[in-house]
């Protein structure tokens, strides 16, 4: 196994090598499910970050768990699994949603964007760059969710003042307490982000 090779910047700055994942079925489950009452396996094609992923899953599997456990996109975080902390925020058809309360099987033919797909190539999205610049994170665990929310709230037009940002970012808990820096980052980025950015 390789040792971690990182700096603080890596939390945000690593190029999303996972975006190059081939379109494969990586289902962990082998046998069809006859016992657990209608929880038969389904083949579902998910469109994540512009790529097709064909996965075999039970209907009870959340989008969050498919992203993390099956597709291997672990940038989206599980903080509570109850829709209370915002760490699992992703965009589905342009809207920010908590992926822990979303069934993966309901996301067929929807466009899913995760933190790994926020920018094209190696450049940071302006919101990511602003989080780095303003040190809008400490442990980094809530950060992907914060950034996905921030990108969406800027597009929604909810970043007109610090108070508005505070209100609309309050679904994303940061236990390290980076809130003032997060507000500064969102304010900064809201001046730079273009429509659809």
């Amino acid at each position: 196994m390789s040792l971690p090779d990182t700096t603080r910047r890596t939390i945000l700055g690593t190029v999303a090598t996972l975006a190059a994942l081939p379109t494969v079925s990586r289902a962990d489950i082998s046998e069809p499910d006859a016992v657990s009452g209608g929880l038969g396996l389904q083949n579902v094609t998910l469109q994540v970050n512009g790529q097709q992923f064909r996965v075999t899953l039970e209907p009870r599997v959340s989008l969050l768990d498919v992203l993390r456990e099956t597709i291997g996109l672990t940038g989206t975080k599980k903080g509570c699994d109850h829709g209370a902390c915002g760490a699992c925020t992703v965009h589905v058809d342009g809207r920010r949603i908590v992926s822990c309360l979303t069934l993966a099987a309901r996301c067929k033919s929807k466009k899913i964007v995760t933190i790994e797909g926020l920018s094209n190539g190696g450049d940071l999205h302006p919101v990511q760059a602003a989080f780095l610049h303003h040190d809008g994170f400490q442990c980094g665990y809530c950060t992907p969710g914060q950034i996905m929310s921030a990108v969406a709230l800027i597009q929604e037009g909810h970043a007109s003042s610090a108070d508005e940002i505070r209100e609309w970012m309050s679904g994303n808990i940061c236990r390290c307490g980076a809130y003032p820096n997060i507000v500064a980052a969102v304010q900064d980025a809201s001046g730079n982000v273009t429509e659809g950015g």
Binding site: H82, A84, R166, S170, I173, R175, G177, P180, V183
Partner: peptide, 17 residues
């Protein structure tokens, strides 16, 4: 025993520091 009933400070609770 969950993070919506165990309240922690959220962004809107925090002023300029």
């Amino acid at each position: 025993a969950n993070i919506s009933d165990y309240l922690v400070a959220v962004n809107a609770d925090v002023p300029e520091i």
